[in-house]
């Protein structure tokens, strides 16, 4: 049974990926978040309709990322390629979820990634939008400094998701860029960050006003490994973040 199709089952984590954003790392992150909250995970694979549109053109070529060689493509070939990736995503999701004893479901849909991700209307705590740059490889160097962009939302879910991320980076250094509405941190946020810093001594926190978002995105967009935004954040800000960042974006309720 597909739990997603059952109206009684509530989805708490949704992971959306498409041809350019799918990675095992994303799947494992989503499963870890679901496992930490003992909540249901729904994987959504988006068949990018733009790719199918382009593939229909008579002169369209596909250029290999690995060899830089070109080869002709068409709608059928593109369709098959996307389906295969979707199946791969489903298999990875199934394997990881079962290993972590996480309830899961899977679906695929044709459309445009951001349109679908931002218009999904479900009862979700976390929406993970898989994203990557045109060229970025999945492999993350060992012992590098991990950087996370967080827009404050006074949500307790921020603390939970940070715990998951900290477990995944082990003892590596962590640099958090914290954007807030006001000039001072709230008491709840301060307490949260102090607890985290106690557990993870190699964590550094840089606080900025939300107004600094544009300059930060312009200068350091490529540096971030994750971005965490409240779902209720202004749609304009969400779109700005999605447009500029190449890393997975986690929307929290």
């Amino acid at each position: 049974m597909n739990p997603h199709s059952d109206p009684k089952v509530k989805t708490n984590v949704i992971l959306t990926v498409d041809a350019c954003s799918y990675s095992n790392n994303m799947v494992e992150l989503a499963v870890a978040i679901a496992a930490s909250g003992k909540i249901h995970l729904h994987g959504l694979f988006i068949e990018d309709e733009d790719l199918l549109t382009v593939a229909e053109l008579p002169f369209t070529r596909e250029i290999s990322l690995t060899t830089a060689q070109e080869q002709p493509t068409d709608t059928t070939r593109m369709q098959n390629s996307l389906r295969a990736l979707g199946t791969q995503f489903k298999t990875a999701l199934q394997r990881s979820a079962q290993a972590a004893d996480v309830s899961w479901s899977y679906d695929y849909v044709r459309g445009r990634r951001d349109d679908i991700a931002l218009t999904e209307e479900r009862d979700v705590r976390y929406t993970i939008l898989g994203r990557t740059s045109l060229h970025r490889a999945e492999t993350i160097p060992r012992q590098r400094t991990h950087r996370i962009l967080i827009v404050e939302d006074h949500s307790s879910l921020i603390g939970q998701i940070l715990q998951v991320l900290l477990q995944r980076i082990h003892a590596d250094p962590l640099e958090i860029t914290w954007l807030q509405q006001g000039s001072d941190l709230s008491g709840q946020t301060r307490s949260l960050l102090e607890d985290l810093q106690h557990e993870h001594p190699r964590m550094m926190i840089h606080t900025h006003k939300l107004d600094d978002l544009e300059s930060i995105l312009s200068s350091r967009a490529h540096a971030f490994e994750y971005a965490i935004l409240p779902q209720q954040t202004d749609k304009g800000i969400q779109q700005q973040v999605l447009d500029k960042l190449d890393c997975p974006v986690i929307l929290v309720a």
């Binding site: 350019c20 990018d48 596909e62 990557t132």
Partner: peptide, 11 residues
């Protein structure tokens, strides 16, 4: 410039 499962395509 679009990402495909195997590489890139242009439209």
């Amino acid at each position: 410039i679009l990402r495909t499962p195997a590489g890139y395509t242009l439209g």
